[in-house]
Design a protein around this nucleic acid. Sequence first.
DNA 1: ATCATTCGTTGCGTATACGCAATAGGCCAT
DNA 2: ATGGCCTATTGCGTATACGCAACGAATGAT
Lengths: 83, 83
Amino acid sequence: MVHNRISLFRAEKGLSRKELAAAVGVNPQTIGFIERGDYQPSCELALKLAQTFGVPVEALFSLSPFPPLSEQLGARSQGATNA
Amino acid sequence: MVHNRISLFRAEKGLSRKELAAAVGVNPQTIGFIERGDYQPSCELALKLAQTFGVPVEALFSLSPFPPLSEQLGARSQGATNA
DNA sequence: ATCATTCGTTGCGTATACGCAATAGGCCAT
DNA sequence: ATGGCCTATTGCGTATACGCAACGAATGAT
């Protein structure tokens, strides 16, 4: 299964699904389906999405689950990676 | 259209299509179809291929054509990038 | 209370990614 | 000359990615 962080990046850019869909040339529903994992994109769409957000494909899609943002940004209080 | 450099990396690793197919869990014909652009892989397969070769997806697949190896490796004699 | 925007979902259609089996040609052994 | 390995291709089947239209619900602005 493929995990993705599209909604995260979309939120950061302040884009609606409609806008993101227009940017990569698909239907807004398609973005929704992909975001919630109903289906995974083609390689081409993955490249376009990564290009739109200015990140590598691996930052958007992954074969293993993404860590929560708190962990990745170096949270201290709850004791994660750097205990 | 999506361009790819699978055959290049496969040649470097000395893998047959059968072996590469086994490594990523598809049929050997599927590798052949993808290599010659008959169809493009899913995002999941692209991730697995990139993982197998130890490169980012963008090194394997691209929305724009890949430059010839000679150019990328800094050829001098025929006058390319660094004239 | 209306209206716009966003999102979730469902249904139906088409294109295509993939599996599997079969065939055929090139090349390199023996 | 036979046999293996690699590759190309074709045909047929299924799963799924996508388009499009429609509807319902939630939010926010006026």
